[in-house]
Amino acid sequence: MDFRLDQDQRDLVRGVRELLAGRFGREALRAAVDGGGGGDGEGDGRLDRGLWKELGEAGLFALRLPEERGGVGLGLPEAVLVFEEAGRALLPGPLVATHVAAGSVPGAAEGAVVVTEVSPEGLVPWLEAADVVLGAAEGAVPVRSVDPLTPLHRVPGTGEWASETVLLTAAEQVGTAAWCTDAAVAYATRREQFGQVIGGFQAVKHLCAGMLVRTELARAAVHGAAVTADPVEIAGAKLLADEAAVANARDCLQVHGGMGFTWEADVHLHLKRAWVRAALVLPGDRAAEEVAAAL
């Protein structure tokens, strides 16, 4: 089986990346992060409805709906490619929940309705911004989120995650892992120390090489699971994607040195989002249990 992307898939990736770069580039990201009240850098929980509508018009939520129902008519492998780009761009909002609900919740496919979901772990992202909440959210209490662009509430956890939700979240994690790899390499090739670029130092080379290996391993697992749609393979892909996202963000911080730990740098935003995704959807211990049970 040939797992390489065909021309249509490569065009899809390029188109989505260009769309997100134009609509939610770095300036928009920083404006969203720094737009919280009090100037403390904590987001105010408001979702950009204009952006959400544009994402709907671009087909992000209706990607897997059949054309006769107003959708794009693509499959899970293409959705994985799109959500990897969303993860790379750090798009805010309950993207996966709205996408998964596009076939059953009126208005979700068009981006007119925001859908969130109660996690089996008892967390609800973007509760106050959502029009529709899937699951019981009575008695939800706000909790402090490490990610300034993912407001969270906590409720009693019940139920299980849908496999497609796990897989698309893993794809977002791959996007963060890839962004961190690219950012670390770009910085290492221009930052000079002791008269040479730091990318020439063996320790930095090893860090960047390890980041690339983790990214490609996780990407291969996510792409493979998108083709088979096997729940165990999806759980394994989520494990690898979580590890790649978190470890790559940490190594990217290391490559950037003291600058990487400043609020003005974007590296910490990817690390924080990776932490939240890892905890919110099929955490590592539960994913490991699912894989182990199948061995």
Rank of each mutant, 00 (worst) to 15 (best):
A58D: 02
E216W: 05
M259Q: 15
T158Y: 10
T262N: 08
G210F: 01
A108W: 12
V267I: 09
V100W: 06
G139T: 05
A209E: 05
W263F: 03
L240H: 15
E128A: 14
L240A: 15
R10T: 04
A265K: 11
V276C: 03
V166S: 12
A218T: 10
F83M: 09
A86E: 10
G73C: 00
D266T: 10
G59T: 02
L280S: 08
D242T: 12
W263V: 00
L239D: 02
V132T: 13
A278W: 07
T176S: 14
R191P: 01
A287W: 06
D11W: 02
G258V: 01
P77H: 09
G59L: 07
K53M: 03
V143C: 02
T116S: 11
G41L: 03
A79D: 04
W179L: 10
A278M: 04
A108L: 04
T176R: 15
E57V: 11
G260E: 03
A229N: 08
A225K: 12
L217N: 11
T116I: 07
L91E: 04
A171T: 00
G135R: 09
G59R: 03
D251N: 11
P66G: 05
G37E: 03
L74A: 14
L167T: 07
S163Y: 07
L212Q: 14
E84K: 13
A177K: 02
G258F: 02
D11Q: 13
G135N: 08
A31Q: 12
L12T: 13
P142A: 15
R17V: 08
P77E: 03
V16C: 01
P106W: 00
S145C: 06
D34L: 14
A221G: 07
E172T: 01
A294V: 01
E233D: 14
A97Q: 12
W52H: 11
L76D: 06
D242M: 06
P283H: 07
H99R: 03
A129E: 11
A79N: 06
P120Q: 13
Q202Y: 05
A220L: 09
L134S: 12
D251C: 07
A28P: 01
D11L: 05
T165F: 06
G103C: 06
H268V: 04
A287E: 00
P142V: 10
G175F: 08
D182P: 00
D285C: 10
E164I: 10
P77R: 06
L65G: 03
E18S: 14
R273N: 04
S104F: 07
T169Y: 07
L29H: 12
A188R: 10
M211G: 11
G56E: 03
D8Q: 15
D285I: 08
V227L: 15
V197F: 11
E110C: 03
K205V: 00
L207V: 06
V96K: 05
R64W: 00
D11T: 04
V291E: 03
L167S: 09
E290R: 15
R88L: 11
D182H: 04
D182Q: 09
A137N: 05
T165C: 08
D131R: 13
R277W: 00
G157H: 07
G236C: 10
E42S: 09
Q173V: 02
E160D: 15
V291F: 08
S119R: 04
R30L: 12
A162F: 07
L168M: 01
